[in-house]
Simulated assay, not measured.
Amino acid sequence: MLSRITRLADISRLYVKLPAPCRTGLYMSAHAAFLTRTLGAERLVWGSDWPHTQHEGRVDFAKVVEHRERLGPLNDTKAIGDLYGPSMD
C-alpha cells in the first residue's frame, strides 16, 4: 500500500493519521519513516484514540505515548492547523 502513495498523481494534499500500535498490530516505525520521507513530517498526524481503544486491558496511555516517541519527529500542530484551521487557544 505504501508504494501506491508514490504512484499518486498529486500528493500535495495528502495527510496520514498514524494510529497507536494496538490498532494495527504493526510496528509502525518503518511506515512512519517512509511517510516522513515521502510526505514530510508536517503531513502526519498521530492519534492514540485513548481512552476509547477497546484494548485497555493490554495497553495503557503511557505505552501508547512511548510508541509515538519512537516514530520520530512529527509536526502534528502544523498538520492540524492545515487541516482544521488555526487554533483557537
Rank of each mutant, 00 (worst) to 15 (best):
M1V: 14
S3C: 11
S3A: 06
R4I: 10
R4F: 06
I5V: 10
I5A: 04
T6A: 14
T6P: 01
T6W: 00
R7A: 09
D10A: 03
D10H: 07
D10T: 06
S12C: 08
S12Q: 14
S12F: 06
S12T: 15
R13D: 14
R13W: 02
Y15H: 13
V16I: 15
K17C: 11
K17H: 06
L18C: 11
P19L: 07
A20G: 15
P21L: 08
R23Q: 12
T24V: 10
G25M: 04
G25W: 05
G25K: 09
L26T: 04
L26G: 02
M28R: 04
M28Q: 04
M28H: 08
S29K: 14
S29F: 05
A30F: 01
H31T: 13
H31G: 07
H31M: 13
A33E: 15
A33M: 06
A33Y: 01
F34W: 08
F34H: 11
L35F: 03
L35S: 08
R37M: 11
R37F: 01
R37A: 13
R37P: 03
T38R: 07
T38K: 11
T38H: 09
T38W: 03
L39Q: 00
G40P: 12
G40L: 07
G40V: 12
G40I: 06
A41R: 00
E42I: 09
E42W: 01
R43N: 08
R43T: 05
L44A: 02
L44D: 05
L44Q: 04
L44M: 06
L44Y: 01
V45T: 04
V45L: 15
V45I: 15
W46S: 05
W46H: 04
G47Q: 07
G47D: 11
G47A: 15
D49T: 06
D49R: 02
P51R: 01
H52Y: 15
H52M: 15
T53V: 15
T53E: 10
T53H: 02
T53F: 00
Q54P: 00
Q54I: 02
H55Y: 05
E56A: 13
E56S: 12
E56T: 05
R58I: 12
V59M: 13
V59F: 02
V59G: 02
D60N: 13
D60Y: 00
F61Y: 15
F61I: 14
A62G: 10
K63H: 09
V65R: 11
V65M: 15
H67I: 05
R70H: 06
G72M: 12
N75K: 10
D76I: 02
A79H: 08
A79P: 12
I80A: 02
I80W: 01
G81C: 11
D82P: 09
L83W: 01
L83C: 12
L83D: 09
G85H: 01
G85I: 04
G85C: 08
P86S: 08
P86R: 05
P86F: 03
S87I: 10
S87V: 11
D89R: 05
D89H: 03
